[in-house]
Design a protein around this nucleic acid. Structure first.
Lengths: 332, 332
DNA sequence: AAAACTATTGTAAACGTTTACTGTAAGTGC
DNA sequence: GCACTTACAGTAAACGTTTACAATAGTTTT
């Protein structure tokens, strides 16, 4: 294959041990003169360290594996940026594995790819593991953390937004804007993650605190997708009850928005929308979507930090309401 | 660290050689009875193969590294899906590395991460390597292919769309729709890749073939970004010349579209837009953007196939015009 | 000048796996 | 009963690196 330290040893006349010490910069174990010779030879021959061999003997790795689900989650990029930032600071490497779109076999493939080689840990970005895959992950001796997804299970650590608070704040905001019949669309109430359920709980709480009885028909669950938004809008239109809608993701918001346009509804005059996420999507549609904005970058940064420092704890990152153009104040 | 074949050998009383043969399924070198015992022990102990060790001794790897630039390239997902498909078919694993947003150091970090471990090859998704990084890549003995970017340099292999044809077809389409003053916005004419230059050439050719003299002011270069689209629209508005614009990416198209709205221009009545790419973005804005649609999935699939089969050749994938709502026929 | 230290380098084992080479027992053909 | 296969399993070397231990020469201390 390529150039190894043996080649450099032969070239320079030193032993592989000395070459190794110079190349991995074990300060104090070699003279400057030697270092110069060896480094020159390495550069000349185009030496590239074989990390697999290093990891084999040292029994440790500086690689963090990120597992993302390939759903159109346009926020994963910001999370990855945050992870990269922290990883670079801590001199760690990052590799990314795609786990498909909630597909058990793809999940397993990604997981296996990660577990079959020496890595220092795994970060899972809003991936909701199937039971057998979670078991697989737990059975490995590799530390892992979830990001942008949370669980009841106390053995699972995560960094995410507080979904209860998201539901609560979004609802409160709409109530303050004069709305009383408020929809909640495109959230997943089935999965093992309790993201959807928490948002629902916060939403209900805010309604009740303001003397509003939540109506079952106001809730249109879905899988956070564009089409879930379209479908939800169709259903709301039949009922003609809600005046404002909270959407489970930006994409749901856009789906809702476009379906509303098809139905000749004007947003925000006929219907207000607030989207949960606040990615760039909100800014590039018309009208721009008001959002509960999550701090995805920070999520990634913090999740990586916890993994690297070996801290087993959960954390919530900040959220904030970003006002744009899709919510209108309603006079009473 | 974890369980090794030694542990299984001890547990079952067989030698590591036999355990290895069973676990890596070397047909014909072990009895069924032995296999059953060893597999049971492996399952019981939760054995996970250490691929790094395997790759070390076999001197080969089944891992393909994908390097993507983290620019908001919303099409990379489709390419990755195509790669994954082919990789799965050929029983290869895939890891992804982020190379930042045209940032030399991030590029180098991603490249080094890939080159420092045994991989069977590298796929670069529309990443325009800095000269020193290209040198680094070439100096390694690892095969690589570019996807969704093309070069004049005959030593570089790629699978991409034919950018000349893209420019030509987009322009021809607009001419057929009755336009004579046609803009070209947001393409990069500076970089080492000749994507932008090719599109420009095809565009000019189509104009000339139809007796239209290309005007310098019709061309507003940029870096394929949303803001490039906004800026280009501002410039076009000052001139008030073009009636239709070809945009270097979907994102440029959306930027242009939204800036047009701010300027009280109606698309497509006052201005027609055709975007190059045709990702889901075109469908989720209003009006939906007509596009020159690229077959990104196929690009990924084919690029992976060439890499896996060791074929050193270039290929162009199909393009097609997808009519939506942003181009209006102009009566003469 | 002996003792003790320091700086630099080498030797060899180890990491977890694969595989060429050997060995052995049982089966086959004559 | 002999030679020849066949089926299965073990021994040991190899992959590229790190590092404990040992060795050497030079320097300092006493």
């Amino acid at each position: 294959m390529g150039i190894t330290i043996k080649d450099i040893a032969r070239e320079t006349g030193f032993s592989v041990a000395t070459v190794s010490r110079v190349l991995s910069n074990k300060e104090g174990f070699f003279s400057q003169k030697t270092a110069t010779i060896i480094n020159a030879a390495a550069a000349k021959l185009g030496y590239k360290k074989n990390m697999a061999a290093t990891e084999l003997v040292t029994q440790k790795s500086n690689v963090i594996a990120i597992i993302v689900n390939s759903t159109k989650t346009n926020f994963s990029e910001a999370i990855i940026d945050g992870i990269q930032k922290k990883a670079t600071e801590a001199n760690k490497r990052v590799i990314i594995l795609y786990a498909g779109d909630h597909h058990a076999q793809s999940q397993q493939r990604a997981l296996t790819t990660a577990l079959e080689r020496p890595i220092m840990g795994i970060l899972l970005l809003s991936v909701d593991l199937f039971a057998e895959n979670l078991k697989l992950l737990k059975s490995a001796r590799v530390p892992f953390r979830f990001i942008s997804i949370s669980f009841k299970d106390p053995t699972l650590n995560y960094v995410a937004s507080d979904d209860y608070q998201i539901g609560y704040e979004a609802t409160k905001y709409l109530i303050e804007m004069g709305h009383r019949c408020i929809g909640l669309a495109g959230i997943d109430l089935e999965s093992g993650a309790h993201t959807g359920k928490q948002r629902l709980a916060g939403y209900q709480r805010a309604l009740l605190e303001n003397g509003i009885i939540p109506q079952k028909s106001w809730i249109q669950p879905g899988n956070y997708s564009y089409t879930a938004g379209e479908q939800a809008m169709l259903n709301y239109h039949q009922q003609k009850k809600v005046t404002a809608i909270i959407t489970g993701s930006d994409l749901v918001g856009v789906g809702l928005l476009n379906q509303a346009a098809k139905l000749n509804l004007n947003v925000p005059n006929d219907l207000s929308i607030i989207a949960i996420d606040g990615t760039y999507l909100c800014k590039i549609v018309q009208p721009q979507l008001t959002s509960v904005t999550q701090d995805f970058y920070q999520m990634g940064y913090l999740g990586a930090a916890y993994l690297i420092n070996g801290q087993y704890q959960n954390a919530f990152t900040d959220i904030e309401i970003t006002e744009r153009q899709s919510v209108k104040k309603r006079s009473l």
